[in-house]
Design a binder for these strands. Structure first.
Lengths: 152, 152
DNA sequence: TGCCTGACTTTGTCCGATGCTAGCCAGCGC
DNA sequence: GCGCTGGCTAGCATCGGACAAAGTCAGGCA
């Protein structure tokens, strides 16, 4: 099980604070102060997460300058970071379904074009909707080369 | 930001070993020995995660009996657990795209009906495909009641 | 009755994530 | 230059998860 894509993903974004930073980024947050305030984990943790995510290539620092202020940097998602959107959305949906308080979900995500609510779904390359139990998992090229010795 | 569905989800499945157990469950693993062996995190961690997931209602223990063996229990996903499939799939896809080794992804997930590869996508209730930047996030009922005092 | 095996549980230790406080530093206004 | 402010960084205590090894327990079996 050495070569598992889920484990590899968790190596990069596997901590709570990292995923919360990414959540904020998807909500449109760009600046250090806003991240620190909204995540509620302290400036040190925020700075560490932003540094790690920048180093990992999920975010990039872009300079900006408010009038009368010195140049500062904001943090924008790269394509690599934006590709995590589905995962964040799916985690949010699960929380909405199974862990929301009585009042309902805190945020609602809608399609900007038509206003209808957005959800994640699975779909195959032929365009069919796919649900739990309708998938077949087969070893891919990355697995075959890994375990001549132990099966683990 | 107290009421965030992503954070609530992470309270339940926010650790690496928890998500690895869920991944194994989606690959069809049911029995303690198989979980422990394939996750590679030791029996103590495996037992703790299975216990936590059962207590949280994502899995349930179902008795079974091999001939000549005493009754044992296997762990099956409940609906609450199965609903995490999209999140696991999305994390796996990200790992395949951005963190796979040169040989390629270790597993390939295909639609059992037609054999085409499966991916997660976002779609609105009207049936439109939705991509990054095409969503509007608005406060939902759960947020409005939380912050009379501080904005945080 | 006592052994043996598989499935956990307990104990202890280590390490990384977190939270807190204080300090550094670049650069704009003065 | 000088001080002030925002954006980090360093140091430290704490806590929870990860890992290893030994202990417990149920029940089939000799």
């Amino acid at each position: 099980m050495a070569n598992c894509s889920v484990a590899r993903t968790l190596d990069v974004v596997g901590t709570r604070s990292t995923l919360l930073v990414m959540r904020e980024a998807f909500l449109g947050t760009r600046r250090f102060h806003d991240f620190a305030e909204r995540i509620g984990s302290g400036e040190a943790v925020t700075a560490a997460r932003l540094r790690d995510l920048t180093a990992a290539g999920l975010m990039e620092k872009v300079p900006y300058q408010e009038p009368g202020q010195r140049t500062r940097y904001e943090y924008q998602l790269t394509q690599k970071g934006r590709d995590l959107l589905h995962a964040i959305m799916a985690l949010r949906e699960w929380g909405d379904s199974w862990a929301a308080d009585e009042q309902g979900p805190p945020w609602i995500s809608t399609h900007t074009g038509c206003g209808a609510e957005v959800r994640t779904v699975m779909r195959c390359a032929h365009g069919h909707d796919v649900h739990f139990g309708e998938t077949t998992v087969t070893p891919g090229p990355g697995l075959i080369l890994t375990d001549p010795a132990a099966h683990s």
